[in-house]
Simulated assay, not measured.
Amino acid sequence: MMEIAKVRQDFPILFQTVNDEPLIYLDNAATTQKPKQVISAIENYYAHDNANVHRGVHTLSERATKQYEEARETVRAFINAASTKEVLFTRGTTTSLNWVAQGFGDQVVEEGDEIYVTALEHHSNLVPWQQLAKRKQARLVYLPLTEEGSVDVAASQ
């Protein structure tokens, strides 16, 4: 089981109180808070290696490109992708979901198909599917939820 208190220690922004309560940040689809390890890596990158990736033959660009490709390989191994060509970095969740809906979704969703979402979706995970349903004349189906906020599997069938 994940130790929340231990995880929180990695996020400096969570050391503050807001409205007399410890900060809890749930809007990760919009902006994800960074752990100190990421903040340190970003600071180190900007202080020592900041350059265009895949666009230069000078030392800084080569170092930046090497780090970028090492990150792609780390993600590839983590998600068990067959190739680093399957790993795409985007600006954020909204861009990623739009790419999936417009790329994959446009290829597999057909008129009359159903696209399942819940009422709990952040708009960044709802709007692309709404647009896809409209483009493809598919139906957007909201799955029912339990009182606890889980998908009610029994009622969904």
Rank of each mutant, 00 (worst) to 15 (best):
T74E: 05
A101R: 04
Y68R: 07
R72T: 07
R139S: 02
P22S: 01
I24F: 09
N28H: 13
V153E: 08
Q33H: 11
Y142M: 02
K34C: 12
V151R: 01
Q130H: 12
L143W: 11
S61M: 02
K134D: 14
T59S: 10
S83K: 10
K85Y: 09
G103H: 13
Y25G: 10
K66P: 02
K85A: 13
Q102C: 04
A77R: 11
A138I: 01
F104M: 07
Q37C: 06
V18L: 14
I24D: 05
G56N: 08
Y116E: 07
V141F: 05
D49P: 12
A101I: 06
E70K: 06
T90Y: 01
I39A: 14
A47I: 08
E3L: 10
D27S: 15
R72Y: 05
E111L: 09
D49T: 15
T32R: 09
G112C: 01
R91W: 13
E148R: 04
R72E: 06
R72M: 10
T84E: 02
G103I: 01
P128F: 08
T17Q: 09
N28C: 15
E86S: 03
E86F: 05
R135K: 14
E73S: 05
G112Q: 02
D27F: 14
D20K: 13
D152K: 10
A77S: 12
A41F: 08
Q157H: 11
L88C: 14
E73Y: 14
L88K: 11
F11V: 02
L23C: 03
R139T: 07
E147P: 02
A77W: 00
N80S: 09
K136Q: 05
T93R: 07
P22M: 02
S156H: 03
H123Q: 12
A119D: 08
V87D: 06
W129I: 07
I4A: 13
G103Q: 05
E110S: 15
M2F: 14
T84Y: 06
L126H: 03
Q107H: 13
T59Y: 09
H48V: 13
N28S: 11
V127N: 04
F89L: 08
S150P: 01
A51F: 06
I13T: 14
Q67K: 13
Q130V: 04
P22N: 01
S96K: 08
L14Y: 03
T32P: 14
A71H: 09
P22K: 01
L126I: 04
E70M: 15
A51T: 03
S124K: 04
W129R: 00
S150A: 13
P12A: 00
L120Y: 06
G149I: 06
K136C: 01
E73A: 12
V127G: 07
H58P: 00
L23Y: 04
A41W: 09
A101C: 11
H54R: 10
P22W: 00
F11S: 00
K134C: 04
K136T: 00
D27Q: 10
S40H: 13
S156Q: 14
A81L: 15
S61H: 09
V38I: 14
R55T: 12
S96I: 11
Y142H: 03
P128H: 03
H58Q: 12
N98H: 10
R72C: 12
T93I: 10
V141K: 07
V7C: 05
Q131H: 15
L145K: 10
L132S: 04
L60N: 07
V141C: 06
H58Y: 14
V53P: 11
Q107V: 15
D27G: 10
P12Y: 05
G56I: 03
Q33C: 04
E73V: 06
F78Q: 09
